[in-house]
Amino acid sequence: MTTPQILYRDEPAVTDTAIPLAEFTAGTNSAAVRIEPGEDVRALLPLLDQLRLVEVNFPSFGDGRGFSSAQILREAGYKGELRAVGDVLVDQFVFLRRCGFDSFAPNRPLDPDDVKAAEGFFPEFYQKTSDGVAAIWAKRHQVAS
């Protein structure tokens, strides 16, 4: 079980132990699963209602597949806790947030001051993602994004 160091959710962190994807899709009543970089997160889409926690593992920070995994889950309407675990660095923080992560359990705890600074670095964003923040183009043209 991992415990998040940082959580952006109204409800408390899910404490269930996340089980591997293969175990989860084989049939289980668990509500928590862990995704590894090479795994196809779309296998979870039929089972989203059952899930309260998805952990996306980053064995090394340079492997960006977890960003797509998170986006796919959020785009499909997953509302549960989405936790980044492993080699999670403060400098990816904003990007992880934008991809839908709302829970962070890094191997090495992040410096809270650095996290605070990172949260505020980008005043605006060019792209629309599932996080609901208005893209720059939406503000320019006063349209919904």
Partner: peptide, 13 residues
């Protein structure tokens, strides 16, 4: 250019 600048999903291709 604008779309690709700080695109959150594609920072670690």
């Amino acid at each position: 250019r604008q779309w690709s600048t700080f695109h959150p999903e594609f920072q670690l291709l």
